[in-house]
């Protein structure tokens, strides 16, 4: 599946904790310790996976691969995402 990049929209890169609720992002980098990155990747949250933020409060709730995952601020700030083009 191609990432469906849209030339018109600027690909903003931001930590998951700053992604507005209801929007979708594509993970492009994980920062932090090896164990954390390993866990996140094994949960299917690795690079290039699609994440939809469901609730923006801390802890945040995200939808990845059809499952709901809760992350506290510490975890959400270590996942950097590219904002997906907003479908109109």
């Amino acid at each position: 599946m191609s990432s469906g990049e849209n030339a018109k929209s600027v690909m903003a890169r931001l930590p998951l904790c700053q992604l507005p609720a209801g929007e979708c992002g594509r993970v492009y980098e994980l920062v932090g310790e090896g164990t954390f990155k390993q866990r996140i990747r094994e949960l299917g949250f690795g690079e290039s996976s699609l994440v939809t933020k469901i609730s923006g409060r801390s802890p945040v709730i995200c939808s990845v691969n059809g499952t709901r995952v809760a992350l506290n601020h510490g975890a959400a700030s270590q996942i950097l995402v590219e904002r997906c083009a907003v479908r109109s």
């Binding site: 709730i61 709901r68 809760a70 992350l71």
Partner: peptide, 12 residues
């Protein structure tokens, strides 16, 4: 330690 990091699945 480092600040706590929580990742938890919320089952339906």
């Amino acid at each position: 330690g480092r600040p706590p990091v929580m990742i938890m699945e919320l089952p339906p």
